[in-house]
Nucleic acid binder design. Structure first.
Lengths: 342, 342
DNA sequence: GCAGGTCATGTAATCGATTGCACACTGGTC
DNA sequence: GACCAGTGTGCAATCGATTACATGACCTGC
């Protein structure tokens, strides 16, 4: 196998052109298919390209055509599965069309958000999918992007962002409230949601209204943070005050686990005396589902975001388009089985 | 506020040059700092750039300088936290230097691996961090990259890859064996590792040897798959044959959870009669650590990979450099507390 | 036989930043 | 006063693909 001097440098379009005895224009058209070439030329060009080991240079192509075939993704740096599910589903949709994903993480408080977004813009991404860490960041992202297609995903969405995918709080809360009503809940206590944070307040209200509509009384709102330790702390304060028929609705699985652990240690029977539910599933339900929780539709949200982005790229006019997807209720061992089987 | 015709197009170097009354060369040098310019010029250029809202064009820069300031990351599409920890730690290290991360997922069986790697190469990434889904993929990645700096991470590493970060199987197994010996284990059974898969076989051997060295007898190797269901299946076959003093060493948390659930349901007391340990922690240990498992050092592996990559980029000569990092042992409720307190 | 059309291909400008080379100027030295 | 070193700038080529426009070949129909 005597390679014909496979020079150290990569072959360019011009090399292929001279090898095939045609112009660079023809090679470009033959390989990209942007315009028809004769079958004979096509064959010759392909052969020449293969012989030289030609590889398309995406950088040069991007410069000239002003399209990088890549989108930027900005996520807060919470190490959780749901973000990884979002990334996977987004990249999956993008890969299918040969679009690359340029990933950047920002601090959960949004400190470096604008900087990261600007960097992606400097790289001339064709679009942006942003999960803003705060409402302000959401507004900034929109402003910075300056006309570039952008889709926002998550809870912290500026009311003015035209394209956004979020959780359907109302219907998700309804799903949970329905289950709680059927398992005999008469009152709920909310643990781990901050009533002073707008996004949390919205969720508190959605849950409260969904419960009220089903005859369940919205009770205290206890906020001591939103991690495992916060759950423990809150439960230590609450455990001897809870009464049968109550359900402790927790912000997420970590809080719920803390609460559950303390309650059981104190001799409170869960779910017999008190039930516990989580509003945000953090761990996939492969491990015996100890908790009843809402599984957020991250994969669908990712797919929807990509679709929206494509839509925004196609149509010049930026129509407002917001989608809210409902969570699934995963029933675990922290709530009872519903009474009617219907 | 009468903006001076902020034309729809983004300003270019040439625009800034004419605005500042200097040449494009000077602007480039002033803004990048690649060569000194006079303080006065610097100020004028900066002012002009700010006035026009100039933004660096990374694409043009990449074409000319032949450096994209980005690295490609290739990961198998397992939706697990540990990969997300790896991504986070890698991007964190890269961000600090203004390097972008181009992310691509491949099928767990490696079907589309070569394609994805080739795409990243076409995008002219400056380096590659690959977690190969199979040993063959590892070899391909090395060959395809053709001189480009590449670091491989994970279990499926071709013996010839020069730069690789992996788990230190020996020391990790030692950590676990030490704990098992101190908790009275006399014999182990391995569940969920495939003795016919080279990577699994290595792990079986490491664990076997570490145990043997501490007077624990390596017992049966049971393989019925490596997910939750496999754990259940295996446990149904094993439960009435296990004897006190045995520890079931499972491939990962899912298998271990399956085994644990069945054993408890069958009345086997864990950890009193039988102990269970997992060789791969899948879920962060925030939730009450029901399982004793090995927490793999994903974050350190990510940081190490980036460092290796930089090293490879700096030094022309590609020295062989392989690092193996040890796991941490997280002791949970599925094993007893060690006897000596020392 | 010729206007008008289609089709494949070539020519050369272009995208926007970087950089080798050349040049001008300043200041110091013998 | 001639020479040299050092510093700051500018000119223009360059990276590699894309594409508007031009060209020429060939066909069709009257």
């Amino acid at each position: 196998m005597t390679d014909s001097a496979p020079s150290d440098e990569l072959a360019t379009l011009a090399d292929v052109a001279s090898e095939a005895g045609v112009s660079t224009a023809t090679v470009s058209r033959a390989l990209s298919g942007s315009r028809p070439v004769s079958p004979d030329t096509l064959k010759r060009v392909r052969a020449a390209a293969a012989r030289l080991g030609y590889r398309h240079n995406a950088v040069a192509s991007a410069l000239r055509s002003n399209r990088t075939q890549s989108v930027g993704i900005v996520l807060p740096r919470y190490a959780t599965v749901f973000l990884s599910a979002l990334i996977e589903s987004v990249t999956e949709s993008l890969d299918a069309q040969g679009i690359g994903a340029l990933l950047r993480y920002v601090a959960p408080d949004g400190a470096d958000h604008d900087e990261r977004v600007a960097d992606l813009l400097d790289r001339r991404v064709d679009g942006l999918i942003v999960c803003p860490p705060t409402i302000e960041a959401s507004g900034h992202a929109q402003r910075l992007s300056h006309g570039l297609p952008i889709v926002q995903v998550g809870r912290f969405l500026d009311p003015d962002t035209p394209s956004a995918v979020s959780l359907d709080e109302t219907s998700s809360a309804g799903l949970l409230a329905h289950h709680l009503a059927r398992t005999g809940t008469r009152k709920i206590v909310t643990v781990g949601l901050d009533p002073d944070a707008p996004a949390d307040a919205t969720r508190i209200r959605s849950v409260g209204e969904a419960c009220a509509a089903r005859g369940i009384a919205p009770g205290a709102v206890v906020y001591r943070g939103s991690d495992l330790l916060a759950g423990v702390t809150a439960a230590e304060e609450l455990w001897d005050a809870v009464t049968p028929g109550e359900t402790l609705v927790c912000a997420n699985d970590d809080v719920a686990t803390g609460v559950l652990t303390v309650l059981r240690a104190r001799g409170v029977r869960v779910p017999d005396d008190v039930q516990i539910a989580s509003l945000l599933q953090l761990y996939p339900d492969a491990q015996g589902t100890p908790l009843t929780s809402l599984r957020h539709p991250w994969r669908q949200m990712g797919a929807e975001a990509v679709e929206m982005l494509e839509h925004a790229q196609r149509s010049r006019v930026a129509a407002r388009r917001r989608t809210a997807l409902s969570a699934d209720l995963v029933v675990g061992a922290s709530t009872r089985t519903p009474q009617e089987e219907s």
